[in-house]
Design a protein around this nucleic acid. Structure first.
Lengths: 105, 105
DNA sequence: TATATTAATCGATGATCTTCGATATGTCAA
DNA sequence: TTGACATATCGAAGATCATCGATTAATATA
């Protein structure tokens, strides 16, 4: 895992915070989040870049970049299926950040 | 209170994180944190800018600026006594940030 | 009141972040 | 194998951040 400063850098942006919250309950924020996925794959969930981009209303390159930096610090995990890359939250790391602030910071 | 993004911006810097941790247990990190303070004042604690600067080993202006931005977003509170300004943690806000991440983010 | 001390503010410069469009890469389907 | 589509990467511009030294403001004291 990464340094907490790097995680805070990633969180220091409203769009990226929004993305994290959208992914908390994909059904509430995306039309058909797993439309391209076969059932067994879609169990772990995740939303593809295109859907997130549409919601974020930013350029494809920016959204891809944001998602990749969120993954780099551990807040998200990704899985590629065919043409699509699905991103989902890494709940463990997110809780670890909360615990760090609560106990150590 | 401020937006959480602004709090994360403040936390996106190792020196500022260090400062927050030093202030968690001033006795462990500073010589005589309350040397200039009369007893009744020093009960609430706090460390003056000069002591924090010495520990941080950065310029006076940078340290003062950092402390003031930490205060602006609510992570610290300050109190001036004579020539000195004492900074201490705002535990409530800090816990609020932890809770935000744990429950809402 | 003049001076020393502590902290805050100002102005500048280099570094990093934000964001885009263009291009490259990977993958499916005709 | 050639397009079409989804995503990733590249390179650039403008904005914001990090950090400093110099100056100003506030306070105590000689």
């Amino acid at each position: 895992m990464e340094n907490y400063v790097d995680i805070f850098k990633v969180l220091a942006n409203q769009t990226r915070i929004d993305m994290l919250m959208w992914l908390k309950n994909p059904m509430d924020h995306f039309e058909k989040p797993t439309a391209h996925l076969s059932k067994n794959i879609s169990e772990k969930g995740g939303v593809c870049v295109g859907d997130i981009q549409e919601k974020a209303n930013m350029s494809q390159s920016t959204v891809s970049h944001y998602l990749s930096m969120m993954q780099k610090v551990g807040l998200l995990e990704s899985e590629r299926h065919g043409k699509w890359t699905y991103y989902r939250r890494n709940e463990e790391i997110i809780q670890q950040v909360a615990t760090f602030i609560q106990k150590e910071l």
